[in-house]
Write a protein that binds this DNA or RNA. Structure first.
Lengths: 181, 181
DNA sequence: GGATAAATATATCATAGTGATATATATAAT
DNA sequence: ATTATATATATCACTATGATATATTTATCC
């Protein structure tokens, strides 16, 4: 199974959703909206945009932008839209998941419980903060977009996940404390 | 912040934990034990092993292995162990998380609820299966290793996560059904 | 007022990481 | 008898990441 470049579909999807945009605008949008479950960076966005143009899936018009680099405004073509649709209809792969906390806990030799506890506590704090953020974002989404189902679904996923992590942290700490009695 | 190659620490950690091993054995171990939160592949393991040897963090002895390629058995050196320790004491980054399901839900235009439901159902089934697997593995870990805290902690993380996903799937389906009434 | 940071906008580079594939043989399962 | 799996190494092309370079305007801080 050939590995496929998903960035191209992210960009096509955003162009379809938001209309003509620059690479910079799309990156900002990704950072705001997809950040909890997907990320992209310029080092990938610009080359992919170039390739999308070469293969006729987007068109580009340059706009003068006094003092700053010219804006390259991309628009999705019909070929691009149909390409996006056909990708959307393929079966998808699961979640790519690399958890450095679990890796470190696993690699740490026995009798290093203090370090474990320190790491777990950090993770706990982090997820507490995330949950607060989600609450704010959800409020914002509900007020601004009416019922933006997609956004709400992805948000609730993030919330469920962080809640699960919090529970796990508490249980893990309990286990470690018990062990040290 | 320079990006660092984590594979090297995974390999050093495994060598410290399991003693002298070949690349193949370490890959098998990763697939069995870390698979739920970390993965590595040969395309990275072999080059990194070579580099670890060049930088004196492992030693290598070749063993004849009639009919098959020579086994290259790697052993962690003191330099390697201290390098591992110093990495273990650095602050760690969060979870790398790329969720293709959420991406697709987000990119799908409105009024495509059937497709959404299909995707969510698939995710639900997948996590149901995972939970069953975890139950078996946990039994095995508890019986074989006595109280292997690390393994139990990572397992319970996986369980919590899948449970959260199941809950989310059910809620998401409810939301979608309500919307279509 | 002057310095600093952030926003706008493009792009490239080296390195990290992935999936497929090549090579070769023994053994186990169908 | 055939096929799949396990053992064992290694490379390749491509994807993805983080840092950095360039250049200007605008906003913020002391």
């Amino acid at each position: 199974m050939a590995r496929i470049n998903k960035t191209q579909y992210v960009l096509l999807g955003i162009l379809r959703m938001r209309g003509p945009s620059t690479g910079y605008e799309m990156k900002s949008f990704i950072d705001e909206s997809l950040n909890y479950f997907w990320m992209e960076n310029y080092g990938h966005i610009y080359p992919v945009l170039k390739k999308l143009e070469e293969t006729g899936r987007v068109t580009c018009r340059e706009e003068a932008n006094p003092g700053k680099p010219d804006r390259k405004v991309y628009t999705i073509t019909e070929a691009g839209a149909s390409d996006l649709e056909s990708w959307l209809s393929t079966p998808f792969e699961g979640i790519i998941f690399k958890n450095e906390l679990l890796l470190r806990l696993f690699l740490l030799p026995p009798d290093r419980d203090e370090e474990m506890i320190r790491m777990i506590r950090k993770e706990r704090d982090h997820n507490k903060k995330l949950l607060e953020e989600y609450a704010h974002v959800e409020e914002h989404v509900r007020s601004v977009h009416g019922k933006q189902l997609n956004a709400l679904l992805t948000l609730s996923y993030g919330r469920k996940f962080s809640e699960a992590v919090l529970e796990w942290c508490d249980e893990a700490m309990e286990l470690l404390k018990e062990e040290n009695k």
